[in-house]
Design a protein around this nucleic acid. Structure first.
Lengths: 173, 173
DNA sequence: CGCAATCTAGTACTGATGTACCGCTTCAGC
DNA sequence: GCTGAAGCGGTACATCAGTACTAGATTGCG
């Protein structure tokens, strides 16, 4: 393995470890030391690649935001809007950690840049289906539903019906 | 002023100060000392009324959650569903601090109890207008819209049109 | 082959934090 | 009125954080 690849691996491991720490113990628990422990690297590795705590958090936010757009894009592309419910359910079950970290980082960091980029990415995915306003409404509704299930911890099965209804009235006819 | 009233005032000041610190500097910045400074009380006052950091944060979350339900209940009671857009806009402008603190505390603390109570309070407000599912959809959509504006920092004027559309398709006919 | 730059490990220092403790003041109830 | 507890100010201590520093290892590159 080349040197550049190896150091990229360390960076990836640090970001992944940060996401884990954020999801498990909260943004406040993110320290160079905690991340280093979680990633299995030395303290110096974390401070070398991400000098300040803000650097680590921003890298983690960018990764989770990009990950989310890629994920929903894949669902839409492969299976169309009907798959959005499945995507939502995945987000609050198997992807729960990443989703929780995304919310925590977004709201704690308030990074306009990342949020704009992320919002544009999502918005673009809906262009072919409905008007800009309706797409925004769908995004907001799905976001609210996801957050609600994430916070309540309840069974996400009812999301299917909710998504069906929201899409029907806004996109259906 | 009686003793009980005076100490209640201190507790209120501590909670208000906590909300301010959370909104301004994030949940991570909440320390007994920072809250004491912000509230103008001594370190001992904060540790006396809220022994641990978790106690302070939970008190602040409970306050903001209750405040939100009271606020939207007042809007609905006085002016009906059409006023929801105004309420949303207030939430992201003059009440921005409290709203931001609510999100941060909710997502960082993941308190099922508070969230359940809060969710029930909101859900009950919609009982007379629509089915449980539609009420949930509206709550989720408004929540998502509010969060979106809060994070993007954009002009909230377009919320009126979005709320009108969401209410029309779900409640109107 | 050799050198500079990148990267990692270990450690140290300063400041801040959670929390406990001591004592003083003030009020509520008997 | 007395007394005990609530409330609050001040202080102290162990812990842990950010960050800097040094030294050594590894690799890209001329």
């Amino acid at each position: 393995m080349t040197r550049a690849q190896s150091s990229q691996r360390v960076r990836d491991a640090i970001v992944a470890a940060t996401v884990k720490v954020v999801a498990r113990d909260g943004v406040a628990a993110v320290t160079h030391r905690a991340v280093a422990r979680e990633a299995g690297v030395s303290l110096s590795s974390t401070t070398w690649h991400y000098a300040t705590k803000a650097d680590i958090l921003e890298a983690a936010l960018r990764w989770t935001a990009r990950h989310e757009v890629e994920r929903v894009a894949a669902y839409l592309h492969e299976r169309g809007p009907e798959a959005l419910a499945d995507w939502l359910i995945e987000q609050v079950t198997s992807e729960r950690e990443t989703t929780l970290a995304l919310y925590r980082l977004q709201i704690e960091l308030l990074s306009r840049d990342v949020h704009r980029e992320w919002g544009r990415g999502l918005q673009a995915l809906g262009d072919e289906y409905a008007s800009a306003l309706d797409v925004r409404l769908v995004i907001a509704a799905l976001d609210g539903l996801r957050l609600s299930v994430l916070l309540s911890g309840e069974d996400p099965a009812w999301l299917r019906e909710a998504v069906r209804r929201q899409l029907a009235v806004l996109l259906g006819d």
